[in-house]
């Protein structure tokens, strides 16, 4: 009984780390460009479809397809920001909202058109392998996915701390006027930021494709999930996205364990409401 529960918690924690990576993308985009990406889950679903297509048609393991998918999503994000969203950066929020919801709807219907309404899943050859860690049983796929997600999140933090481009992006978030005063190319940096956020989504989607099925309705669900995570963790905080993802991942399995799996969304929303009441800025968000 307790072993089973512990196994469930480990499962939730590992899945949560993949959620974190997806939410990190949302947080980075909002923190810098100040645009809320309402198409975030839909982009994740696209990445999952891409992973499925590569696996099914080219027999490419999602872990190997990941860099390619992340790159594709980077380009998608960069182009979206440059060609579409940039014109809306200074516009009122409701206009940004309509724009990105439109993008999301196109993506959902596009995937319906191409892949149909059915769920698509990936079964990698090592899909049923497990590791015994003491008394615990850990899924190999889940462990690999979580490790990859954690490494990518770490690399992202290093990118923002150590590279000049990363510092320039932080400078835009820190003081936009200052960034323009010293001649930073803000439009290009915004596009790179959106690209990086989208690349997180690409990587997270490739990893998620090994853990859950994808169907057109996954998009809106994942958008909701990413929102809950960043609001719980603190919008714009990278550490918050990480913490929020783990929390929501664990809460989902606990809901399944104590009640029933279909109640997992309810649990996440309950946490969201609690946070909004008790700590509206999120667990690691700065108080305004």
């Amino acid at each position: 009984m307790t072993i089973d529960l512990a196994n469930q918690i480990v499962t939730g924690l590992l899945t949560g780390l993949v959620y974190s990576l997806m939410a990190l993308g949302l947080s980075v985009i909002f923190g810098v460009v100040r645009v809320v990406n309402f198409a975030h889950g839909e982009m994740t679903a696209l990445a999952m479809y891409a992973a499925w297509a590569l696996f099914t048609w080219a027999e490419l393991d999602p872990l190997l397809g990941l860099p390619l998918i992340a790159l594709l999503l980077f380009v998608l994000g960069y182009v979206m920001q440059r060609g579409l969203i940039d014109a809306f950066v200074a516009k009122p929020e409701h206009m940004q909202f309509i724009l990105l919801v439109a993008v999301a709807i196109i993506m959902v219907n596009g995937s319906l058109l191409v892949f149909g309404p059915d769920a698509h899943g990936i079964q990698v050859p090592y899909g049923f392998d497990t590791y015994e860690v003491g008394p615990l049983l850990v899924d190999k796929v889940r462990l690999l996915a979580a490790t990859a997600a954690l490494c990518i999140s770490g690399l992202l933090m290093l990118f923002f701390r150590r590279t000049m481009t990363g510092k320039a992006i932080r400078a835009c978030a820190d003081n936009l006027v200052g960034a323009r005063v010293i001649g930073l190319n803000v439009k290009r940096l915004y596009a790179v930021t959106f690209g990086i956020g989208a690349a997180c989504v690409g990587a997270a989607g490739a990893l998620l494709s090994m853990l859950i099925d994808v169907m057109p309705s996954s998009g809106p669900e994942l958008t909701m999930l990413a929102f809950i995570i960043v609001i719980v963790g603190g919008l714009g905080s990278m550490g918050g996205a990480l913490l929020g993802g783990i929390l929501i991942g664990v809460s989902e399995v606990l809901a399944g364990y104590f009640l029933m799996p279909s109640m997992k969304g309810m649990f996440s929303f309950a946490i969201l409401i609690l946070i909004l009441i008790l700590r509206p800025q999120g667990l690691m968000g700065a108080r305004k």
Binding site: M164, K167, N175, G178
Partner: peptide
Amino acid sequence: GQVAEGRQVFPTMSVEDNLELGAMV
């Protein structure tokens, strides 16, 4: 170049980072 009204430094970044960013052009 410009030294703008209100100084417009990057408050949460180090002095050295601020300076290095000035040489990004």
